[in-house]
Each structure stands twice: as C-alpha cells, then as structure tokens.
Design a protein around this nucleic acid. Sequence first.
DNA 1: TCCAATGGTTGCATCATAAAACCAGATTGC
DNA 2: GCAATCTGGTTTTATGATGCAACCATTGGA
Lengths: 156, 156
Amino acid sequence: MVKRTSFEGDACPVARALDAIGDWWSLLIIREALSGQRRFGEFQNKLGMAKNILSARLRALVDHGILAIAPASDGSAYQEYVLTPKGRGTFPILVALRQWSEAFDDRPEEIATILVDRAKGRPVKKLELRAEDGRLLSSADTTLKPRPAPRRRSAG
Amino acid sequence: MVKRTSFEGDACPVARALDAIGDWWSLLIIREALSGQRRFGEFQNKLGMAKNILSARLRALVDHGILAIAPASDGSAYQEYVLTPKGRGTFPILVALRQWSEAFDDRPEEIATILVDRAKGRPVKKLELRAEDGRLLSSADTTLKPRPAPRRRSAG
DNA sequence: TCCAATGGTTGCATCATAAAACCAGATTGC
DNA sequence: GCAATCTGGTTTTATGATGCAACCATTGGA
C-alpha cells in the first residue's frame, strides 16, 4: 500500500484519531456541523470546497460513525448529515485547535470569532488538563504508560 | 492556486491551526517531540516515515515556529529539532485527540498507552471546557461571537 | 410539462506523498 | 590523515489525492 499510510492499526490513539479526522477538510466539516449545518449545499456553501471532495469526505465521516444520514428535517425528500455522539465528541479537539490559534497565531487580529458561553456571552476558559486530584498538568507533568491488563473477557 | 487550499488567510482559527498542523504527519512529529525525541533519525525511526516527507515536515514546522533548530546537545556537529513554546502549546490538541480515541474508538483494546500524571502515575482527567464562572460547557452551551473591537493601534 | 435548484458523479490536470536510490558531511577506526 | 561508516538529508520516479469544471439525476415548483 503506497497510498495514504493509514494509521488505522496503529497503537497510538493520536494516530488513530488522525486516521479518522486528520485530513484537511474533515474537522472543518465537523465544525460546520457543530454550528448547525446539515445539508450538502450548506457545507459546500460555507466551506467553498469542491463538491466531489465534500462528497468523499461526508461519506468517509459517515463510514467512521462521525456523521449519520438522516431524512431532511424540512419535510423534503433530501437527506441531511447529522453528528453522532462520536461526532459531537470532537468538540474539545476543535476548541483546542481554536485556543491554540488564539494563543500562538502570528496574526491573531485576523481571527474573526471568539467562542463564548451561550448563557452569559462571556469567553470560555482555556481547556485545562488536570490530574485526578485536580492539579493542573503540563506536558512535562505527564508520561505515557502501557495500558494495564487487556481485561480478557467482559465484566470479570 | 489549485494546490492545497491553504487556510492561512481564513478568519476561522480552527482553519488557521489546520493550516499549520493539519496534515497527517505534523502532529505525530510533535507528539514524538513532546516525548523527548529531537534528532532526525529518532523521528524517522519512531515514525517509520519516508525521509523526504520527514524533511519537508520538519522544515514546515520550523517555518511555522513550532520547532526550532538547535545545535546537538551531545556535542556533535549535528542539529536537533526542539519544540518552541508554540510547539509545546499543541499539547492540549494532542490530549484531545487521544481522549477522543479513548472514548469513541471502535477497537479501544488496540490502544497501547495511557496518559498518566507523572507524579502519581494515575490517569489524567478528561479535558473540560468551562465558563468563566466554572460551569462545565458542552458544544451546545457555547456559541460564536464576532471578535469585539479590532483595537486599532497598540496600547490605547 | 417545462424549468430551476439541489445533490451529487465523472473527467482531467495538477499537486502531494511515498519508497528507494543517491549523496554530502561528520565521525570513527586505524 | 585516509577509508569505512553513520547521520541527515535530496533527487527520482510512481501513484494517489485534490481541485475545478462539466455533466447528470432527482426534487420541487409553476
């Protein structure tokens, strides 16, 4: 396989995630889906991407269980693409990407939007990684361990 | 430009982040860098990727200010690639990707490692998005607002 | 029935990716 | 100080992905 170097069988969870959503468009499609877009035309319009690419990406996202196809909510015979729980679970990834840009982008003045708490209209806090006991952790405060027992069967 | 649809000028911070680290290998390189790898050969060995691609990615990451070239720490005349603060700032993105895989992967038993608090050896908590007042926020609890005043000059 | 919009697919040109061969400078052994 | 070897790449070549435009099918409306 000379093609895309799929990481599907990789043991690294980061690689596995990238295998599903690591291409240029998937996260942007999910971003639009999270902000309420559902129709092919809406995605195409908002993202300005080629329709064949959009078509392929939507199919891949459906295959990965991130989007699901549903009948149109407006009563028409068309179909819609709605996020599954797995799809909505990408929200922290998008927030992390956003906050990284906000913190480190060379031209932050070009960033047009801010993410706010809907109830108060105030900016959200930065994502924080904490230990079980609540201590704030940086990358240097963490390490990787092999996953413990494979837990051979089900509830033991 | 028929090429890669650069999102560099896009106003969406997610797109801007993807423009820098949205390809297949960059985040994996950063992941290795965060776990202590610094040399070309180390990256190539750990990731098993083609050397020309690695070379191009390292150059791009340096151009984006995510990695910096430093003289080798072992006294040899070779060079090393070390993370800048901007590079270390991607840590939450990697954690978010990891936790998404852990939560939603179809075959979680294939995931070989867990991220633990170095001090205690205990798994870290899930990333949480909170409002200014500490309320836990899901995607539905947030919305996007236009960035307020462009703040025309410098300190006003 | 005709017409326009929606929701795609197909064809073709171009670009990126990947593997392997090749190569230059650094290091080491002698 | 010269050859052997290792490190860190670049070049070459094949192939897959991307992007645009054109085309097609179905829906919806007059």
